[in-house]
């Protein structure tokens, strides 16, 4: 028998068989792809949350500035009068859109709302008197929510 033939017959497969490397690469690539996708998804969620929160902060302070502008205008108007029942004062207040007022024996209570976004407003209530103004209420409310409506807290009955 020829030696060459003998070697060919008796020899075991040299090294690693074909296909194992490909299988391993497919497995590793799939693992890496899954991890990369999960990482990207987590990071993207975080970014979306941060952008939304940061945008809300900007919207809130823009609305707060607008509410302060309204307060400054009201203060300018009201400070020109000593009698809060004055017809001219009430006419001027009527001209300021979005404000509601109540005349009190010792002053004038004005309330208005400034929109933060389509879901929330800043609700403001200020009392003007001879001593200047006092902020009674300056809070965020849901659009359509009334301040007087209390939250239904279960009393255990």
């Amino acid at each position: 028998m020829d030696v060459k033939e003998k070697v060919g017959k008796n020899s075991r497969p040299a090294g690693i068989g074909t296909g194992y490397l490909s299988l391993m690469m497919i497995f590793v690539t799939l693992c890496l792809t899954a991890l990369a996708a999960l990482s990207f998804s987590a990071a993207e969620n975080g970014r979306r949350f941060s952008v939304r929160s940061a945008d809300y902060t900007a919207e809130y302070y823009a609305a707060d500035l607008e509410a302060k502008r309204t307060l400054a205008e009201l203060d300018k108007v009201v400070s020109g009068y000593s009698d809060y029942m004055d017809f001219m004062l009430l006419a001027e207040l009527d001209e300021l859109s979005g404000t509601e007022y109540v005349t009190l024996p010792d002053g004038l209570e004005v309330s208005w709302k400034t929109s933060i976004n389509d879901r929330q407003n800043i609700s403001c209530k200020v009392k003007f008197s001879a001593d200047g103004f006092e902020i009674l209420d300056w809070r965020t409310v849901s659009a359509g929510e009334t301040e007087e409506a209390p939250l239904g807290v279960w009393l255990g009955e």
């Binding site: 040299a14 090294g15 690693i16 194992y20 490397l21 391993m24 690469m25 590793v28 693992c31 890496l32 991890l35 990369a36 999960l38 990482s39 987590a42 990071a43 969620n45 975080g46």
Partner: peptide
């Protein structure tokens, strides 16, 4: 070839563990 295969396998394991660590860090940070 066996050594090359082993090196490849070890590198793959290292890469997977590095990727898993990176994912863990990003996820924990989030």
């Amino acid at each position: 070839s066996m050594t090359l295969f082993l090196i490849f396998a070890v590198c793959c394991l290292i890469i997977i563990s590095v990727a898993a660590t990176a994912y863990g860090r990003i996820s924990r940070n989030y």
